[in-house]
Nucleic acid binder design. Structure first.
Lengths: 137, 137
DNA sequence: CCAAAGCACTTGCATTTTGCAAGCTCTTTT
DNA sequence: AAAAGAGCTTGCAAAATGCAAGTGCTTTGG
């Protein structure tokens, strides 16, 4: 990990933009976080149709930022398993706020009604529950 | 407002990306939300040095999405005042979570220590206070 | 009342990033 | 030994960005 990109400023919003401010990176994080996808070909199969060169680039970038790590699969040594680091898992509250905002403003959102309800009623509890699910994994 | 962009999916994360998933949009929202900037030239003067054509494009886009609105200034009729709509102000929790995450992971962050402390201790109270400041404005 | 300055852009063009299709290398399965 | 799966890389066209200059309205100062 660790690589330096010329930084425009050290504003916290800008730091986030330089980490995941593009059209694709957060989708990969979403897949890792909520869809239990872990491999190159699984990311490729998502609805938004990322292309292979962009996916390879973003995974490399996420690794260099310490948000994602990869390891060789136990069962199949030609397969790589990607996963979120602590830094990546700490993006959960951001993802939840984004989900809530989009759920409120996208008339066609496919965010599950139950999830949106829980976000309104008990966001912190929900976040804790999701994190708990990661602990004993 | 309202314009249609061909949408890749109705995933809530993707909706957010299609609203502000680029290197500049969130900086404009930051300036409107926290730096009391309201005009084209003020946005231009930010540290990150956005160029005029991109700024014009993003403001147009934010208006068409209903996140920002503009009106002619009372004192100076050649000046336009940009402001956040309700939809835009509702991005505050996302901005706060981003600030907290970046504050935690950017060793050089310039997020004020006091703000980060308050975010750890009483995020909801902080958000309420900021929103209250907007009410009687 | 006219010239200069302020404000919000637009335009043109070079550079960079993206999107798409094809191909390549190394396992693993049959 | 051949085919299939997994994770890429490469080449090229198209789109987005960055930079510098210019345009068309106010508004201000003399």
């Amino acid at each position: 990990m660790s690589e330096d990109f010329p930084s425009r400023s050290h504003c916290p919003i800008n730091y986030a933009l330089e980490s995941f401010g593009d059209k694709w990176t957060l989708l990969i994080i979403r897949d890792l976080m909520f869809k239990t996808k872990t491999s190159f070909n699984e990311f490729l199969s998502s609805n938004e149709k990322i292309s292979t060169n962009i996916l390879a680039d973003r995974l490399r970038r996420l690794e260099s930022l310490g948000i994602v790590s990869k390891e060789v699969s136990d069962e199949n040594r030609s397969k790589l398993i990607y996963s979120l680091t602590r830094k990546g898992r700490d993006l959960l509250p951001i993802m939840m706020e984004i989900t809530q905002w989009s759920g409120r403003y996208d008339p066609q959102t496919n965010a599950p009604e139950a999830l949106l309800k829980r976000l309104e009623a008990d966001k912190l509890g929900l976040i804790k529950d999701i994190e708990a699910g990661w602990e004993h994994k």
